[in-house]
Simulated assay, not measured.
Amino acid sequence: MRLPHRVPRHRGHRLPRPAGHRGTARRRGPPCRVHAGLTDSAIVGPRKSAGWQRDDKAGGTSPAEVVRRVRPTVLVGTSGQGGASTETVVREMAAHTERPIILPMSDPTRLAEAVPSELLDWTEGRALVATGSPFEAVAGGGITYEIGRANNALVFPGLGLGAVVARATRVTDAMLSAAAHAVAAQVAPTAPGAPLLPLTTELRRTSIAVAVAVARAEDGVARETVGDDIEKRVRRAMWKPAYRPVAGLVAGRAAVVVRPAGPRWALTAVAAPAVVAGGGLRGRTREGRN
């Protein structure tokens, strides 16, 4: 269903619903009964938090207490508070998780919930870390840990490119799933020091892999046949930031100026003296096209 561009959300107004929609039943109790994937232990409410230690400074249950009770395997930082993931929190998490996944996503760097070097130190090198801000590799214990960035640039360029090459009429769930799996396939997180996500310095390689996977998983919405040459077509469709050199003019000397001329470039040999006036060149010129 496509909603109008702007829909008023004042009291008494309801959004249009698709045909056959029966509405959402109102239920009481913890939200884990409605949302798949959550368990009762993940819900911190009045009934579940009885006996939990309260942090009056934080105005409720402290992160350390939640980690101790819930025992999460993934910690995502989006607080915008530098140092929010403290040593106590991380060590508690690592105490009952063999490979804790920790994602301090806030940026700029000074707002990151924790820095990779500390996370690896507090977990004896067991943490799988990806960050929102750029961080250098961390060396320790004879291993160099590459730190990947959890950045949407790993997915979106390849997702769009694959859809364009396949001439897909829309982006389906299968295409999104293929994009996510293609990103994950670019790394081997079990290898010592390997990043959790592909490095942004290898973004073009990742985008090609994502685009190919998306095009192959077109889910019946492609208007182009996706054959064995799909990777070649993806590479051909990619924009390449390649520019020709432009020579500057030096008074009293001849110079060659490269300038655009329609779909091609024109080479102009300019004999001294040359003057740039009103956006044009004055002097004896000899032109040729490549």
Rank of each mutant, 00 (worst) to 15 (best):
R2S: 11
L3F: 15
H5A: 14
V7F: 15
P8A: 13
P8L: 12
H10I: 14
H10E: 14
H13W: 10
P18V: 14
H21C: 11
H21T: 05
R22A: 15
G23M: 12
A25W: 02
A25M: 03
R26E: 09
R27F: 03
R33Q: 10
V34A: 07
A36D: 15
G37D: 11
D40L: 13
A42F: 08
V44D: 06
P46Q: 13
A50M: 09
A50V: 15
D55N: 14
D55I: 02
G59N: 00
V67H: 11
R69F: 08
R69H: 09
S79G: 03
S85Q: 14
T86E: 00
E92M: 08
A94Q: 11
A94S: 14
A94E: 10
H96S: 14
T97I: 09
P100R: 10
L103P: 04
D107Q: 08
E113S: 05
V115I: 14
P116A: 05
S117E: 07
S117V: 07
L120C: 08
W122G: 03
R126N: 13
R126F: 07
R126D: 06
S133Q: 02
V138N: 03
V138A: 08
A139R: 01
A139Y: 04
A139S: 07
G140H: 02
I143N: 05
T144S: 11
I147Y: 02
A150P: 00
N151K: 01
N151E: 05
L159M: 01
G162Q: 04
A168D: 04
T169M: 01
V171H: 09
T172S: 14
T172R: 10
T172I: 11
D173C: 00
D173I: 02
A174N: 03
L176D: 13
A178M: 10
A179M: 06
A180Q: 12
A180S: 15
H181M: 10
H181N: 14
V183N: 04
A184H: 14
V187G: 05
P195D: 03
L196W: 01
L197G: 08
T201R: 15
E202P: 00
R205Y: 01
T206M: 04
I208W: 07
A213K: 04
A213E: 01
V214G: 01
A215D: 08
A217W: 04
E218P: 02
D219Q: 08
G220Y: 04
R223A: 10
E224D: 12
V226T: 09
V226R: 07
V226P: 07
D228K: 08
D229I: 00
I230Y: 07
I230S: 11
R233P: 02
V234W: 01
R236S: 11
V246S: 09
V250M: 07
A254V: 03
A255R: 00
V258R: 11
R264K: 11
W265D: 12
L267A: 13
T268G: 00
V270D: 06
A271L: 09
P273L: 12
A274L: 04
V276Q: 13
A277C: 10
R282N: 05
R284Q: 05
T285V: 15
T285K: 12
R286S: 14
E287T: 09
